[in-house]
């Protein structure tokens, strides 16, 4: 239990480093919400090797701390909406046995719903519910980001299993990789 807490703390700081690094990359597209989503690597890996509760904690922690540390409190609402929707979707997919979704699909849906959550929060705050214009672009962006993150996590976890750094006992989880 304490070990999980300690590791979760380390995960949060890794997510913050990734967030900072991602902020240093020259902004590509000029469309709000299109980003690499590298921090989701940490969240998704946490879900698979630490469990859903730790994953939620890490997601909450990294969203709030990132907003605090990088001086973006105004954007906290959107990040929180997207981040929470994302992690809950991923947990939901993780617990569904049939149909069985692999880590890449979970990552893709997590990324897509992260964007949807952010846009929904923006639509509510701006009092304009006509968000349909941005949806196709955001879904595609989420798919791209999700595939990348999902593949990174897949081989990361597989590598850790092979190097015996971690041990996963649930066979269904192993099937998802």
């Amino acid at each position: 239990m304490i070990k999980k807490m300690a590791i979760s703390g380390i995960f949060i700081s890794m997510a913050l480093v990734l967030s900072f690094f991602e902020g240093m990359l020259p902004v590509n597209f000029g469309i709000p919400g299109v980003k690499l989503g590298l921090t989701n690597i940490v969240s998704l890996t946490a879900l698979f090797i630490l469990g859903p509760v730790s994953a939620i904690t890490i997601q909450l922690g990294r969203v709030i701390l990132a907003a605090l540390m990088f001086g973006n409190m105004a954007g906290l609402v959107y990040s929180l909406a997207g981040g929470l929707l994302s992690i809950f979707t991923m947990i939901l997919l993780y617990n569904i046995r049939r149909p069985l979704f692999g880590i890449v699909a979970i990552s893709v849906l997590g990324a897509v719903f992260h964007n949807i959550g952010q846009i929904a929060a923006a639509a509510i705050i701006v009092s304009d519910l006509r968000i349909s214009y941005y949806l196709p672009i955001l879904v595609l962006s989420g798919v791209a980001s999700g595939i990348f993150v999902g593949l990174v996590c897949k081989y990361l976890i597989k590598g850790m299993l092979r190097a015996k750094y971690i041990h996963i006992s649930n066979p269904i989880t192993l099937d998802r990789l």
């Binding site: 069985l100 893709v108 879904v139 595609l140 798919v143």
Partner: peptide, 17 residues
Amino acid sequence: RRLFNDTILIALLILIP
């Protein structure tokens, strides 16, 4: 099964947008 499900899902998420 997992590979099939994943591919269908991602294909849908690309085709529909």
